[in-house]
């Protein structure tokens, strides 16, 4: 690191930078603080506090009653388990399938490769809502052989929430772009040594792909954890519902006293924990990937 020309000026700039960043951090933390503080207050107080700074402070009638009520209204544990299961399985399978696909597009030469890649890129512009109904009709007629024998229809299962989302254009695109930027000499040298494509993928490319794996994992995690429309139409039994469908349990018209905002905040606080934990766990790799993407070209 080179020394600054003017240490005093450097110090001032440093302080200014920290002040600005701290203010920005506080602004970004406000919604989270509001959510957690509100989850501890009764509805009347919560709504009354929204017009003042009290909304961000643990003042007044503080308790965990909203958490207790949320558990009695919604099977929180079951829904979080379902979401975590569906999300984690999808993320793992997606990283494997999409990285393989990206590897193929980046390094292998085969007929129709560029055309197929263009088609995959084109899927970016198709909103999920437009294909939800055809997907519903297809999955409701798909066969399955499981422990309980042969059956038709995937509705009301975990697999109907997982399989359609394993491969997607954005994740494949991320891998292709990242793989293309890896030193091609490594691949060529390995090929000269007689290494198979599978060995190159497994022993050379993947160990160098930590940042893109982290980025793809976070993006897929967020998409899957926030799934609402698809599980709402393909899951009719409560035992398979995810957290976002569970959120709708709190918006009932005939609830005495109106919508239970405190319970909603308590529920949101609980279901936000896994997302934050996952992000904090791999944030370094994520930032590294984004930073690397930013200096390319």
């Amino acid at each position: 690191m080179s020394m600054p020309n003017n240490p005093d000026n450097y110090g001032l700039r440093l302080v200014t930078r920290y002040v600005v960043l701290t203010v920005i951090a506080i602004i970004f933390a406000f919604p989270l603080v509001f959510m957690i503080m509100s989850s501890l207050k009764p509805d009347q107080q919560l709504l009354a506090d929204t017009s003042s700074l009290k909304a961000f402070l643990p003042v007044g009638d503080i308790s965990f009653q909203n958490y207790e009520n949320a558990f009695s209204r919604v099977p929180v544990g079951l829904f979080v388990f379902n979401s975590m299961l569906v999300t984690s399985v999808t993320v793992v399978l997606s990283l494997f399938v999409c990285s393989l696909s990206g590897f193929s597009f980046a390094y292998l030469k085969w007929r129709g490769r560029d055309l197929l890649f263009s088609i995959i890129l084109a899927t970016f512009i198709i909103p999920f809502e437009t294909i939800a109904i055809p997907m519903l009709l297809i999955t409701s007629k798909l066969p399955w052989i499981g422990l309980d024998g042969f059956s038709i229809g995937w509705l009301n299962t975990y697999r109907v929430q997982i399989v359609p989302f394993i491969a997607d254009g954005l994740t494949i695109f991320l891998f292709v772009q990242y793989f293309k930027d890896l030193p091609v000499e490594l691949i060529e040298a390995a090929r000269v040594e007689g290494t198979t494509w599978w060995q190159i993928y497994r022993l050379i490319v993947i160990p160098l792909s930590g940042p893109v794996l982290a980025t793809a994992a976070i993006l897929k995690f967020l998409v899957m954890y926030n799934q609402y429309l698809w599980p709402m139409i393909v899951v009719q039994q409560e035992e398979y519902r995810p957290v976002m469908v569970g959120l709708q349990y709190f918006f009932q018209t005939f609830t005495k006293g109106g919508i239970a905002w405190g319970e909603i905040m308590a529920y949101l606080s609980m279901i936000t924990v896994p997302v934050l934990a996952f992000y904090l766990y791999i944030q370094r790799a994520f930032i590294a990937s984004v930073a690397a993407t930013g200096v390319k070209g």
Binding site: M232, E238, Q248, Y249, F251, Q252, T253
Partner: peptide
């Protein structure tokens, strides 16, 4: 089987 009201018609 119970559904949340907001999601019910679509389901």
């Amino acid at each position: 089987t119970a559904f949340p009201q907001i999601a019910y018609n679509d389901a």
